[in-house]
């Protein structure tokens, strides 16, 4: 009970601070200076119609690289702590056979889900979408595969292969920016093309596709490890 009272006092303090934040907030009529620069110069400089994409991939590209690194280290830590069960142990546990309906619809739907994920990250510089969204959609497709065939353990090598290849290629393109353009992760190593078409915005579609593959593989790996976790005694 005493602990709850202390927690309540701490929470009241935080609520007071947040109330101050809320009271001092005034809605703005114009963009702040940094955003104004991005909105004015961004489309001509980088050629990307989606300004969020140009901020994520190029202007703040280093943040995105760090973020992908965090995802990678989380996936490795989870892999370190949770030992996967082998296929024989999974079979011995006796999963109920999945239904005919689920099998058939999985075979029909999973390619379409993967295709939609690829569409979302390839068109990330033109429309809402991009690597993170497309990667999450691809991970949902993998999840459907896991649900349909709980005992299979094939996809593991594919997942780790996609993960490492896309990660290396992402950093490689970033380094190519140092030599061919203005700096690390600069997208103008490829021609920026005509504004608003699919082959435009330099390397942004390439980088965002690699991020999409990487995020999809990491999230699939995390789901996989949580699904197959073995109890050790």
């Amino acid at each position: 009970m005493v602990k709850k009272i202390f927690a309540l006092i701490a929470l009241a303090g935080i609520a007071f601070m947040l109330w101050g934040l809320f009271k001092s907030y005034r809605h703005q009529e114009t963009l702040p200076r940094t955003s104004r620069y991005y909105a004015q110069k961004g489309p001509d400089e980088l050629g990307s119609a989606n300004l969020v994409t140009s901020v994520v991939v190029t202007y703040r590209g280093l943040d995105t690289l760090g973020e992908v690194t965090i995802l990678f280290s989380v996936a490795s830590i989870i892999g370190f702590f949770l030992k996967s069960r082998t296929q024989r142990e999974l079979k011995a546990e006796g999963f109920r056979e999945t239904s005919e309906l689920l099998h058939t619809s999985t075979a029909f739907l999973v390619p379409i889900i993967f295709l939609f994920g690829a569409y979302v990250f390839v068109g990330g510089h033109l429309s809402p979408g991009g690597g993170f969204q497309g990667g999450a959609i691809i991970a949902s497709g993998t999840l459907l595969l896991f649900l349909a065939t709980p005992t299979a353990s094939r996809g593991k090598t594919i997942i780790s292969l996609v993960e490492s290849v896309s990660g290396v290629a992402y950093v490689g393109i970033g380094i190519a920016g140092i030599f061919l353009a203005a700096g690390f992760l600069d997208n103008r190593i490829l021609p920026t093309g005509r504004f608003g078409t699919i082959f435009s915005a330099g390397a942004i579609p390439v980088i965002y596709s690699l991020i999409g593959l990487k995020v999809g593989a990491e999230l699939s790996a995390i789901l996989y490890k949580l699904k197959d976790a073995k109890e050790d005694e």
Binding site: P32, Y38, L51, I70, V74, I78, F132, V215, I222, L226
Partner: peptide, 30 residues
């Protein structure tokens, strides 16, 4: 664009924050 769009920078920030959030949740669950 300058007079018609909302601020893109916090949106880009939230985009990465969501993915990091789910990664941290997975770590805590482990």
């Amino acid at each position: 664009a300058v007079n018609r769009i909302v601020d893109p920078v916090p949106q880009a920030l939230v985009l990465t924050a969501i993915v990091i959030g789910v990664a941290i949740t997975a770590l805590m669950l482990t």
